[in-house]
């Protein structure tokens, strides 16, 4: 944990939709570096990211972003000036070239004058490795390249806070690896909040992780601490252990089990995925029991 002032300080954020509670009293702080946001579908990850990105406001709770209160118009604008946002499934203007699209976003970010804006667009495109594709229409780019265009748009103006909502969805392994590298690099000297389903993403690029489930924060800490939650609770067996919270068949035919191990269990080193599943499944079991 760094001693500098947090980039984002959230306290008891709550947001209710007509039929469900998307966020239920979530509190956290974000500092420089990459923070992963893990959680199952419907956990409230996108809602939380949209609140941090000033797209929507929480019903209650307090949020201070980059020293500003985003509930006020002036505060919202001040945050947006220093914010980079890559939404879930970002859209593109297919008939724009990569340069034109990022330039368009730059204009909406009020980056002027034109000469310096164009320099900035070229810089971010080079940053994401699309220097050679500047003049290519977006409809002609691959999915991975499009994601990089979206990341370039998010990096415009050197933002202090970058919010990335599931940026690796739909990418092939190589593209995902390359994207992780870019995200890791972009987290140097700024705050990145990365929502993902992929525990590998968290493992490889995040210094901290927040686990959300059913709108509640279940865990906040370092990825190793998340893995450590399952320490002594992961074992292999030839059959699915009846008492396991979660168990699945692995490639070598054995079963990997998480939960309270039997006395003769062959314990193995847990991964962050084990810790995450342990957390989520234990919460689910507790909820069912309740």
């Amino acid at each position: 944990m760094t001693a500098t002032a947090p980039t984002v300080r959230a306290f008891e954020l709550t947001l209710r939709y007509p039929r469900r509670t998307a966020l239920d009293g979530v509190s956290f702080t974000l500092h420089d570096g990459v923070t992963g946001l893990l959680g199952p579908n419907g956990a409230g990850k996108t809602t939380l990211l949209r609140i941090v990105a000033t797209a929507i406001a929480a019903d209650s709770g307090e949020l201070t972003t980059l020293g500003h209160d985003p509930r006020t118009v002036a505060g919202r604008l001040a945050v947006r000036r220093r914010l980079g946002y890559l939404p879930q499934s970002p859209g593109f203007h297919p008939n724009f070239t990569a340069f034109e699209f990022v330039d368009y976003v730059a204009i909406l970010k009020e980056l002027v004058p034109a000469r310096r804006r164009h320099e900035e667009v070229r810089r971010v495109l080079a940053t994401v490795g699309l220097d050679g594709e500047r003049g290519v229409k977006i409809k002609a780019l691959s999915g991975g390249m499009r994601q990089r265009v979206a990341l370039a748009a998010a990096l415009l103006g050197d933002p202090d806070l970058v919010v990335l909502d599931e940026p690796t969805v739909g990418l092939d392994p190589e593209q995902r690896m390359r994207f992780r590298e870019l995200v890791a690099e972009s987290g140097e000297g700024r705050t990145v909040l990365l929502s993902t389903h992929q525990t590998e993403d968290v493992m490889t690029v995040c210094q901290r992780v927040i686990v959300l489930d059913h709108g509640r924060s279940r865990f906040q800490g370092e990825p190793t601490e998340l893995a450590a939650l399952a320490q002594g609770r992961v074992w292999t067996s030839t059959v699915r252990s009846p008492g396991a919270l979660a168990a699945w068949r692995t490639g070598n035919g054995s079963y990997r089990n998480i939960g309270e191990p039997p006395a003769d269990a062959a314990l193995i080193e847990p991964t962050i995925e084990d810790g995450y599943l342990m957390l989520i499944d234990a919460a689910g079991t507790a909820k069912e029991a309740a």
Partner: peptide, 25 residues
Amino acid sequence: TTTLTRPSPSHAGVPADRRHAALAL
């Protein structure tokens, strides 16, 4: 592999002029 470099100070916080941005748009 691409190394992400922070922009030079001239890039950081490009002066935002709302009217000019609207005209650029």
